[in-house]
Structures are given as C-alpha cells and as structure tokens.
Design a binder for these strands. Structure first.
Lengths: 244, 244
DNA sequence: TATTATTGTATCATTTTGATACAATAATAA
DNA sequence: TTATTATTGTATCAAAATGATACAATAATA
C-alpha cells in the first residue's frame, strides 16, 4: 500500500520519489470459485493494507503501478487499470504509519516526508491466481490472498477503495471482456461462468451464458477435459482475441 | 489548466498548495447543436490550455476541481467526473510555462515549484452553456468556448486529454444518464437527441430515441413549445430523477 | 448395462429494438 | 377558410436478442 507504507528503504529519505502522491493496487485473483484480493500485513504493528508504492521522479505513474503489481505477484503481463484518485484531505492519517515505523525501529520525525499528506492513484489488477507468487515488501512481512468476504480491518479508506475497484470491475466486465484475465490459459465454460457469477454476485443462466460467450467469437476450443467424474467431458477454451 | 499554468498569484511561492500534482478540467457545453470546450488563452505568450489549478494543502482533490470549474464558469451545481490521471514523465515540459511567466513578467528561477514535474488529475464537467459566464484566471486573459473541431494547438497533452474526456463521456452517456446536464432546465426531445447525436458522433433514429427516453421514466412533460414554425408544437421536458 | 451428473445445442416464448406508417398539429400560403 | 408544409407523437409490424425449457450426448460409476 502507499500513503507512506511499503516504501523502499533505500529511499526512506524521500530522495528520488515524488512527494505527496502514491499508488495503491487492488490485485484480484480467482480460486475455488472465490474472488480474492492480495493484502499486506505488518504483523509487528498488527496492520493490514493494500499493496502500494511511490513514483520515482522520472517514472510514468502507470509504470509505477505495474512495478508494484509485479513486485507483489512476480507477474509481468497483467491486466491493470487505473480507476480512481482518492484525494480527500480527511483520509490522511499518519498514525498507522507511525506505528509501523516505530515497530520497525525506523528513525523519523514529525516532518518526515512519509508523514505528510498523500493522495493515491488507485489501480485494479486481474491476475492468474495459479501463477502469482505473493511477496511482501520491505516493510511488511506477510503478503497473501484474502477472500472478499473475510477481509480484515484495513488502514485508512482501503476498504472503500476495494469496494470501488469491485464496482468498476463489475461495470467493465461485459464491455471490456476482462474476466478471462483471472483464469489460467485454458479453462472450461463453467470456470468462466463462475468468474462472472462471483464478480457480479449473482447466478447466471448456464445456456444463455454459454451462447453469449460463444457468440463473441473470442473463444477457441482446445480439447475435451476429462474431469474424472461421471458426466460428459467439457471443452477447454482459450481466449484468442477481440471480436472482429 | 494546471501543469503550472493558471496558478493563483497569491501563492506563487508554492506555500499552501500541494506540489507536483494539479487538476485540469475539460468543461463541455452545448450550443447550436455543437459540443464545445472551454479553453484559456495566454495571448501574450500565444498559448492555449485547459483550465486547471492546484490543490490547497487541506483541500479535497475533488473540491479543487469544483473550485476550478466554478471559477471559470461562475456555476455552482455542475456535473463533474474524475476520469483519468495523466502521469507520464514524458508529458512534463515546462517551456510553455516559462514563456507565460516571462511574458507576464513574473520572476522565477529554474527551481521554481511550478517548473518541476506535475501530474494531473483530470475531470470533465457538463455545464449549461446558456448559464455559464466564462472568466479567465489570473494568468490568462481570454476564456472562451471552442467547437470541438476548431480547437487551436494546445500545450502539452491537452488535446489527448480532451479526446479521452470525450470517449469517457460517450461511454457513460447511456449508463449514467448525463446528457441532460448540457441542456437548460427545459428542452425538447429534439434538443436532447441533438446532444446525444453530437456526443456519439452519429445519427439516431428519432422514434426509437424518443421511445427509449420516455421509457426511462425520468422526463416530465411541462408544456407545449410553440416554435413559431409551421408544424406541430413539441413538448418541453424537464428531467425529474433517476428511474425507480 | 443401467444410472448419474453435466455438457452442448436446439427450440420456442418473450422482450427489446429497428423500421415504417400515419394521424395530429401549428404555422403559412392560396 | 381551406389547402399546404414541416414536424411531432404514437402505433404497428418485422427482426433481433434474450430468457426458459427440453433433450440428446457423453464419461464415469454402480
């Protein structure tokens, strides 16, 4: 997360980074028919937060976000979308950060650049859960997935940020055809439907969903997948491209 | 605009404002069946730009945007939507600002806070053209409407910002029901259709459009409008609320 | 070989959208 | 006064999209 947390110790003096502005990432994964979010834990201070980071003085803001997601997941080619700037003055609260710095034994004074007001540019990322390797940053010690309905209390307005990320994801699901970014390279129609149902929070009719997805012309049938269970084997699909 | 332009002279020393971050506003109006954008001109320097401004140290970012739009248009209750952060390092170019400062006789040195890198949070606003009273800011001398297809060369990436604002507007037109923000309190169905056609850049079928709009249940019929021409008088409508 | 669960697709009903037709004006012209 | 004209509001029918149901085709197990 940003707002001061998860900063790179090599730059703890603020040299080389933009001040007052940071990025946060809501990194979504999908597993066991559940939508998951990647969170950092600062266990010494008992604090949970979204992954985030700062912007180097000559770095594109979008690249800073890519860097953060790459560092937390080990993944390169991920779907990443800027969705909102959280910039209310009232959200600014440096007490959790002080707690983290104190717990970590970092020296600081009240004028430390990390304790000043920050606004954050927020992104959501869709990653392949099976390929991601969660890794904490320099300050935190745990980085792991949480089901959306079992998220611990988070610092500042990070819970609202997740809520807004989710509703943005919901809005763009049909229009931008982004659901498949949460799945491995090959998947069954039932897998895809589970992604949609979980994100939208409602059941979809199987036959209607299948007709719609096939009608988009972006799915390629690969082979049959024998699940080892007593029924017809479903096809495996791969996403190929945008419709013509 | 921001990126250094249009700053408040009382704070030219940078005290009281956040550094490195600014807001720009793409203010849309509608008149003569044309979509228009409000631009500032710095005629001494021969430079055109979007209206923008800075964020006071204790001000919400969204409030800073509201303030800018209010100052340029004289309007209070306007529709305003944050749509993107432009944060590429490559977009940063302080030469136009230097030109403006020189033309204005403002003293400055290379380390002036306005000459450092800025990223901008960008908003689009939809205002009632008939009520807006364009007003330049402290540095510029002309503030006026431009048709979208006769926009002069703009500083930095302001042309791209307008393009992105327009496509965001297009995407949200049906979903968010925002078209009416461009019209006066009462309007005919033909007026409304003209707004939609201009924004979307294509003709719509009159009867289908009318059925759709009436079906939303958000229009109230006020009275007949006698246009003075040889045909049936259209109804005047008023927007009442979101559909139930 | 029957049974079971699930998949892929066909079919029909319902709803939405597209296209056309036409009566109802409000001004002007004859 | 009475056609003529341009537009508006709505009805109507066709076409397309969506919703709902049915059913045959498996792949495993009993």
């Amino acid at each position: 997360m940003a707002d001061g947390y998860g900063y790179d110790k090599r730059a703890a003096d603020g040299k080389g980074f933009m001040h007052g502005i940071a990025i946060d990432a809501v990194i979504f994964g999908f597993h066991d028919r559940q939508l998951k979010v990647l969170l950092l834990e600062y266990s010494l201070a008992g604090i949970f937060a979204l992954p985030g980071g700062f912007i180097r003085e000559t770095e594109n803001v979008n690249d800073a976000a890519l860097r953060v997601v790459r560092e937390r997941t080990g993944l390169g080619n991920i779907f990443l979308d800027q969705f909102y700037v959280f910039g209310d003055y009232g959200r600014f609260d440096n007490r959790p950060l002080k707690a983290i710095m104190q717990a970590g034994g970092t020296a600081f004074d009240e004028n430390h650049w990390l304790l000043q007001r920050f606004i954050t540019v927020d992104y959501y990322a869709l990653v392949d859960f099976t390929k991601a390797v969660p890794a904490p940053d320099e300050e935190s010690d745990i980085c792991r997935w949480y089901d959306l309905d079992t998220i611990p209390p988070l610092i500042q307005d990070h819970k609202q940020i997740i809520a807004k990320a989710l509703s943005t994801l919901q809005d763009g699901l049909d229009k931008k055809l982004i659901g498949f970014n949460l799945l491995p390279d090959t998947f069954t129609m039932a897998d895809l439907q589970a992604v949609y149902e979980t994100i939208l929070g409602k059941k979809l009719q199987r036959t209607v969903f299948q007709r719609k997805m096939l009608g988009l012309g972006i799915l390629q049938r690969i082979a049959k997948k024998h699940t080892g269970r007593a029924h017809k084997a479903p096809y495996l699909y791969r996403f190929v491209s945008q419709p013509a």
